[in-house]
Nucleic acid binder design. Structure first.
Lengths: 134, 134
DNA sequence: ATGCCTGCAAAATATTTGCATGTAA
DNA sequence: TTACATGCAAATATTTTGCAGGCAT
């Protein structure tokens, strides 16, 4: 808990009750993939009173502070990943679940040069999975 | 125009006025990346009366029929691509524009096996670009 | 006390659904 | 005519914003 407080301070965020609560859920146990709604539900279940708007704001603040990474998986819902290192994902289309693909196991080759004046910030690879009906 | 009608029939969709109108915009001129809202605006500008809901429904029907591919680029907005072949994208984060990366120029190596019972349906690669401030 | 920062209610935005209506056979 | 598909109004889902109030100084 103290370490969450510290983590927030280091990131330049005031350790308010809500942030500490959400941070504990997010960073308390290994890598997680959450949507705003999932996190909100968890917070309520844990007895923390937070509004959904605050969850959204907090997720974005954490993302800007580099504590989270936002994932674009599905056209109409944002996911956030507590693992900010450079890694990629399996997405199981049937149940909407996400699995990490370990850092470094994927290599992307043959990238064309980006247009003039632009540089690559980050490459996202999403491997979409469906049932293997065999 | 007749070819749009035909295309819809082949895909198993009745060529209604709205579908033909939206199809003409989408497939009439090269590869396009559109959001529902953009397409709706274009349709209105072209003098076609369509509701935004119909645009959404039509985009999804086209996607299911294999005429479009849905892109997950941004957490909170869906994009559709008229190029359904296997290719990837540059995403310019500043202005939100999308550029195709030609088929085949990218190779992804070192993929781990998918979990049992699942198989790879499709791999999305999004190369995010930011201004090169040099 | 003062002024910046926070968190939430309300607003805005984005998407889906249910059903009256239209259309092909 | 009949049955099914269609398209839109209304409902829902998702995200952002504006501002009253809290907090560190």
């Amino acid at each position: 808990m103290a370490c969450i407080t510290n983590k927030l301070r280091l990131a330049g965020l005031r350790p308010t009750r809500q942030r500490v609560a959400l941070g504990s859920i997010l960073f308390g146990s290994g890598d997680r993939h959450v949507s705003a709604e999932m996190l909100h539900a968890e917070a309520l279940a844990a007895g923390e009173q937070v509004s959904l708007a605050t969850v959204y704001n907090t997720l974005h603040q954490f993302t800007e502070a580099g504590l989270l990474r936002e994932l674009a998986i599905d056209g109409s819902k944002a996911f956030f990943d507590t693992n900010t290192s450079n890694h990629n994902h399996f997405y199981v289309e049937n149940d909407g679940s996400l699995l990490d693909i370990p850092t470094g196991s994927i290599r992307v080759d043959g990238l064309p040069e980006p247009p003039k004046g632009l540089k690559i910030s980050h490459i996202d690879v999403v491997v979409r999975l469906v049932p293997d009906d065999r």
